[in-house]
Design a protein around this nucleic acid. Structure first.
Length: 437
RNA sequence: GGUCCCGUGGUGUAGUCUGGUUUAACAUGCCGCCCUGUCAAGGCGGAGAUCGCCGGUUCAAAUCCGGUCGGGACCGCCA
């Protein structure tokens, strides 16, 4: 055995370049197969796994220990066609760094993950170590990084706005309230008002941050805390410009996955979405299409139902060969107060939703930027202007025509990996019944 | 908030409709033994579940009924 003085750690992914060399690897005991005279240990680190061949006496440090024990291994990298990756580590010596004596609540080193979603989430701290779960959340990191890249290179400024507020921002009752030094306070349901204020400072801003909704929704696509990808931009010619930016942004984000972690895209069997020329239809046109194609009369409905969205998605898929479709011009009364009514037809607003594979993914609009118009709308909706002082001040002192949108990041990931439930693409989901872990 | 489904060893399921040879089965995991090339290893053996909980019907309940707690799906609402 040739022994070097001190070996620094090598990641398993770099081992093929170290053939014939003595190396030290560190990671988790992913699995072990004992044959008596020859034994195989699978070591996992952040970059992957590798097989280590152990003599019987080298198993002793692992007596009584379970998988997920943290180990250090010193050995020689050898070419070996019989090993999965063509190499393995031999003449190895094992050192236990952190012993594990408890048995895992479920197996995380098999091809398929067996536990139900509920059981998985109860044990997410170890369940997330499962390879495909790692893949999902590595890709999530790529989405966020690409979101930032794209916007920063287009002169947007990243902002971080407060999540504690003294007023229930957008007028809804669906906010979490709590006591803040003896005063009532709320968790913000979106950064909407702050990002608009910041258009008055930087013209173009974006934020990645949590949004809180106190809705008791029991669905596969809602969370009570989700990570919102917010964008807001000033000096726009119209909402079309905002929609163009959104499509360019999403294309960039999704392409980034295949560039940064193609192996994860492959492991998850992700079908990268088709963009094509993303169709744009108005809310009323969508309802007419549903009547003609699916025979359901929705003309009296002020909003789209989940079934409507599935139909619209199917129509876009079959008629336009795309996974995306914009629905624009929603009834003004159904949108938030800051949405700009269409000057040609104020019953409808310059607003849009982007439907991705039959599910609402993004909501946006051109905003009211005129102070007097904003005041009239707030008063006509019975809202108290006193609750919006800071917001209104920004408009009182000059705001350009502006618009923006918010992407539900967990939903984007959910549809990308074709998960049945948004909780599968959220690390530690918060829903009506789940507050831990 | 409304409607509908489901709770069986650590995990995933079968058994429930049609109550009784069920000592509650199978797979995986765990423990022990065997095996020099596994890679979802294999073979043999073992431990592990009073069938979510409470009550009722019955000679007899995992199985039927009621309640309760937990989970899931759809709708409403949204991202």
């Amino acid at each position: 055995m040739t022994e070097t003085a001190i070996l620094t750690r090598t990641l398993t992914r770099d081992l093929p370049e170290k053939r014939g060399e003595r190396v030290r690897i560190e990671g988790w005991l992913h699995g072990i197969r004992k044959f008596g005279a020859v034994n195989f240990l699978i070591l996992r680190d952040r970059s992957g796994t590798v097989q280590v061949v152990l003599e019987p006496e080298q198993l002793e440090p692992l007596d009584g220990l379970q998988v997920e024990t943290v180990v250090g291994v010193e050995g020689t990298v050898e070419e070996e066609p019989r090993a999965g990756r063509g190499i393995e580590v031999r003449n190895a010596r094992v050192e236990v760094i952190t012993p594990v004596r408890d048995v895992l609540p479920f197996e995380i080193n098999k091809k398929v993950l067996k536990p139900s979603l509920d059981v998985f989430l109860n044990h997410a701290p170890v369940g997330l170590r499962y390879a495909k779960k790692q893949s999902i959340f590595r890709l999530y990191s790529d989405l966020l990084a690409a979101f930032r890249d794209y916007l920063l290179t287009r002169d947007f400024t990243e902002i971080a706005t407060p999540k504690i507020a003294g007023a229930a921002t957008e007028g809804g009752a669906n906010v979490f309230s709590f006591e803040y030094f003896g005063k009532p306070a709320f968790l913000t349901q979106s950064p909407q008002l702050y990002k608009q204020i910041m258009v008055g400072v930087f013209e173009r801003v974006f934020e990645v941050g949590p949004a809180f909704r106190a809705e008791e929704h029991y669905t596969v696509r809602h969370l009570n805390q989700y990570n919102s990808l917010d964008v807001e931009m000033g000096f726009i010619a119209g909402q079309e410009e905002v929609m163009d930016l959104l499509i360019g942004l999403l294309e960039y984000m999704i392409n980034a996955l295949a560039v940064r972690h193609p192996e994860d895209v492959e492991a998850l069997g992700i079908a990268l979405p088709r963009f094509g020329d993303v169709p744009r239809i108005t809310f009323r046109e969508a309802q007419r299409m549903i009547l003609e194609r699916y025979g359901e009369d929705r003309s009296q409905e002020p909003d789209l139902s989940p079934q409507d969205e599935r139909w619209i998605g199917e129509w876009a898929d079959q008629e336009f060969n795309t996974d995306f479709i914009f629905v624009t011009h929603y009834p003004t009364a159904k949108r938030a107060f800051y949405s700009l009514p269409d000057p040609q037809d104020p019953e409808y607003s310059l607003s849009f939703d982007l439907i991705f594979r039959g599910q609402e993914l993004v909501s946006g609009s051109q905003r009211i930027h005129n102070y007097e118009q904003l005041m009239r709308v707030i008063e006509s909706r019975g809202m108290d202007p006193g609750q919006f002082e800071g917001y209104l001040e920004a408009f009182r002192f000059g705001m350009p025509p502006e618009g923006g949108f918010a992407i539900g990041s967990e939903r984007l990931l959910m549809r990308l990996v074709d998960a049945d439930n948004i909780r599968e693409t959220t690390l530690f989901p918060r829903d009506v019944n789940r507050l831990t872990p």
